[in-house]
C-alpha cells in the first residue's frame, strides 16, 4: 500500500513487468514438463506421484495467482475475502473426505 499509484504507470516499470511476465510464462512451461516427467517416475507407490503432481500444480497455480493476477501487490481487502473462500473450500474438501472416516468405510480403503 506504500506504493504511489503512479509508480506502476512509468514506462520503465511496465517494461520490467513485460519481461517478468515472459520469464514466469517460461517457468510455468518448465514446471509443466517437470510435472509430466515426474508422473512417469516410479516413486514406489502411485499416491506419491499424485502428491508430487498436486504440489507442483499448486506451486504453478500460486505463480499464476501471485504474478499474473498480481495478487502479490494487491490490496488487503481482496486477501480478506479470498481467505474466507479458501477456508470454505478446504472445509468442503475436508468434510466430504471425513465422510469416509467412519467404521463403515475405513476397512479396506485406508
Amino acid at each position: 500500500m506504500s506504493h504511489d499509484h503512479h509508480d506502476h504507470d512509468s514506462p520503465e516499470y511496465l517494461k520490467k513487468q513485460s519481461l517478468l511476465v515472459w520469464k514466469i510464462g517460461g517457468w510455468l512451461i518448465v514446471f509443466t514438463c517437470l510435472t509430466v516427467w515426474l508422473q512417469y517416475v516410479d516413486f514406489g507407490s502411485h499416491s506419491r506421484n499424485v502428491i508430487i503432481g498436486l504440489l507442483l500444480a499448486a506451486f504453478k497455480a500460486s505463480l499464476v495467482a501471485l504474478i499474473f493476477m498480481h495478487l502479490k501487490s494487491e490490496r488487503g481487502l481482496i486477501y480478506k475475502f479470498l481467505a474466507f473462500t479458501v477456508i470454505f473450500v478446504i472445509g468442503l474438501f475436508a468434510l466430504t473426505y471425513l465422510h469416509y472416516v467412519s467404521p463403515l468405510y475405513t476397512e479396506g480403503l485406508f
Binding site: 503432481g53 507442483l56 500444480a57 497455480a61
Partner: peptide
C-alpha cells in the same frame, strides 16, 4: 488458466 493447471495433472497424469 489456473484451473487448467490443476485439471491437466488430475485428469491426464494421475
Amino acid at each position: 488458466d489456473l484451473v487448467w493447471i490443476f485439471l491437466f495433472p488430475l485428469l491426464y497424469l494421475m
